[in-house]
Nucleic acid binder design. Structure first.
Length: 659
DNA sequence: ATACATACC
DNA sequence: TACTGGTATGTAT
């Protein structure tokens, strides 16, 4: 759906000139020419708010885009966005040249410029096999997402007629809009005055966008009620934000549907077992029993879906009428995507089989994948990759183009199973190894926007305010940090950051201490900066917390087998794309799954640790087709698993020799 | 360790 | 006129 972007002549022209400028160093590239136009045609995709949110299907995007562009044309903000867009264009051009060079060098070896891709696909086969094989075989992962959470909370306590009018939470900046407003293209992260214009013009002056000030306490209270309702189904749920939760209802389903227990009995059992960490497995065994058939009991997926339906109904009742949507799938990436499909007040089930997973995920725009944002979408589009199926089809190209972490993430996404770290919702690696700081939080920050052009004194005063506010939060949370970062946003929207790590033994929490550091840093930034130093935002961030040191070193040394023997089986049984934000902390899981879970964890970790893309890099000498073929022959001559999986990722070129 | 960029809600 | 705030993480140096 993101493919049809209205071209804006000025932007397109600008982008094309960028292309010329940046490709001047180009080597004779024939292969790249065929696709080089695509990066300019979607220039506006990065700049305007795409209408890809739930509730915005089939609206007159042309008119919405036209109004947004007209309203922001020439603004400083838009200029900054265009600058960003051009930087992405440069990146795309560099990738195209990299590809052209590859095709050129391969052509001299093989006479077929693109045959390296076939070889690459072949090299990926064992990795894909492993991934598919270690895929979970039940759909018990649930993502629950409240429908327009903030605005729904507000409308709950207001006359119902309001719900039929376009409403939003937020004044200068819109944080949520109701579905009436979304029909006009009004959405989160949109400045209020553009929302006003959209409603005014698209309703022909008949309607006006209603702004409701945000009331965070209200949303927090509701969020706790929601979590309470959901926790009956998974006491170890992860609350990702106020309005989103990740659950594994496998244990609930096994007892409720598999055993036929009452809801109340299941809740009591889960609540008591979840309090204990994985060392207390005997207790769980007593509670749950040891029968083998229970472990793999075949609960019909429609019965699981019914549980989700019931769960959503309980949320609605508990909150006094707030609706939510849910996705039910065999991993959290799919569940997350699915939760958006039947919004609002709906749910979507994705079956666990490979076939069902691919049928669900392959037709989707790559943008639907959590972790693929506007920039990655644009880069992929530039190589004619638009839907997830393209991502799979072009997997060799993708491995060649992107850095290992991105490439791995994209490959897994194309198979319908990503839990990689590109997604900020990915699991932390510290689940059990963590000792001191309980939350797993990595940093804390405060920032404030104000009208640009403040005097130096005013600026320093603002900075002190931010420091004091941050200090207060750190005292409340009992956080002390080693590193402090200053963030300065200029009136041009350019962002400058400067960081300082304190000498050993010195930690930051006290406001005055932070003010000293930040004031000096701001002065340095001002001195370094040429041109008018007009600031629109100041921010301070503290990271590198005291008490996190031993842990990071420890987990870095932990190898896979140790990881498995030490850790709870959570991640594996979840195959998780699990969050750890704040209040709810996952500690244990029903133990009967542990065998399967460990197996899953091992294969998963091995795949994860394999540097796929080194097979495509020049330096390793693995880009020659003949060597791929040699490797395959050698590989097929052994009983062990594929060569890839026993290889030190940092030394891939040693594989042929070791065989 | 630092600076900047991307992503999510 | 006018485009947030908080957190995490990837990439490059």
């Amino acid at each position: 759906d993101s493919g049809s972007v209205v071209p804006y002549p000025s932007l397109v022209a600008q982008s094309e000139s960028t292309q010329r400028n940046t490709s001047k160093s180009g080597s004779a590239s024939t292969a790249a020419m065929g696709t080089s136009s695509s990066s300019s045609s979607s220039a506006s995709a990065l700049i305007i708010s795409a209408c890809d949110k739930a509730g915005m299907e089939g609206i007159d995007r042309t008119r919405v885009d036209e109004i947004i562009m007209r309203e922001s044309a020439g603004s400083v903000y838009m200029k900054q966005q265009q600058k960003r867009d051009q930087n992405v264009n440069v990146k795309i051009d560099e990738l195209k040249q990299k590809l052209a060079a590859k095709d050129y060098s391969m052509a001299s070896i093989n006479s077929n410029a693109t045959s390296w891709r076939r070889a690459g696909e072949h090299a990926l086969e064992p990795i894909i096999d492993e991934l598919v094989q270690s895929r979970p075989r039940r759909s018990t992962c649930v993502v629950v997402d409240m429908d327009g959470f903030y605005i729904s909370c507000e409308l709950l306590s207001r006359p119902p007629e309001l719900g039929n009018l376009p409403c939003c939470v937020g004044g200068n900046m819109i944080t949520t809009s109701n579905y009436v407003a979304r029909r006009y293209g009004v959405r989160a992260a949109m400045p209020g005055w553009i929302g006003d214009k959209l409603v005014e013009e698209l309703s022909n002056g008949k309607e006006r966008l209603i702004h409701i000030p945000s009331n965070f306490d209200l949303y927090t209270r509701k969020a706790h009620i929601i979590r309470g309702a959901l926790a009956e189904y998974d006491p170890n749920l992860r609350a990702y934000s106020l309005d989103e939760a990740y659950l594994d209802i496998g244990p609930y389903v096994d007892l409720r549907v598999g055993r036929g227990w009452s809801h109340e009995r299941v809740v009591a059992t889960l609540a008591s077992t979840s309090k204990h960490s994985c060392e207390d497995k005997e207790h769980v065994d007593e509670e749950v029993g040891n029968e083998e058939e229970f472990i793999h009991c075949n609960v019909d997926i429609s019965a699981i879906a019914a549980v989700v339906k019931e769960m959503r109904e309980k949320v609605k009742v508990a909150t006094g009428g707030l609706t939510c949507s849910a996705g039910l799938a065999s991993n959290f990436m799919l569940a997350k995507i699915a939760s958006d499909q039947n919004k609002p007040n709906g749910q979507k089930v994705v079956g666990p089989s490979h076939k069902e997973v691919l049928e669900f995920v392959h037709p989707l725009s790559v943008r639907k994948v959590p972790g693929i944002g506007r920039v990655m979408e644009k880069m992929l589009n530039a190589f004619d990759i638009h839907i997830v199926h393209d991502l799979y089809k072009e997997r060799a190209l993708v491995q060649f183009l992107f850095k290992p972490a991105s490439a791995r993430f994209l490959l897994r996404a194309s198979l319908g199973w990503s839990n990689d770290s590109l997604d900020p919702s990915a699991p932390e690696d510290d689940e059990v190894g963590s000792s001191s700081s309980a939350s797993g939080q990595k940093g804390i920050s405060k920032e404030r926007t104000f009208s640009a052009g403040k005097s130096w004194e005013e600026l320093n005063s603002k900075l002190e305010d931010v420091c004091r506010s941050l200090s207060q939060s750190m005292v409340e949370k009992n956080i002390k940090a080693h590193t402090i970062t200053l963030k300065v946003k200029l009136h041009t929207f350019d962002v400058i950051t400067r960081a300082k790590t304190m000498p050993r033994g010195i930690v930051l929490q006290n406001a005055d201490q932070m003010i000293v550091e930040m004031t000096e840093m701001l002065l340095n930034v001002k001195r370094q900066h040429k041109g008018t130093f007009s600031v629109r935002l100041l921010g301070v961030r503290c990271s590198n917390f005291q008490g996190d040191e031993e842990r990071s070193q420890d987990s870095g040394q932990m190898d896979i087998s140790k990881f498995i023997s030490t850790c709870s089986p959570i991640r594996a049984s979840h195959n998780s794309l699990v969050h750890s934000t704040g209040t709810t902390k996952m500690t244990s899981r029903i133990e009967k799954k542990v065998d399967f879970a460990q197996k899953g964890a091992q294969t998963d970790a091995q795949v994860k640790n394999t540097d796929i893309s080194s097979f495509f890099s020049k330096e390793k000498g693995w880009n020659k087709v003949e060597e791929f073929e040699t490797a395959q022959v050698l590989d097929s001559g052994t009983n062990s698993t594929h060569a890839l999986h026993s290889v030190d990722p940092g030394n891939v070129s040693s594989v042929p020799a070791s065989r």
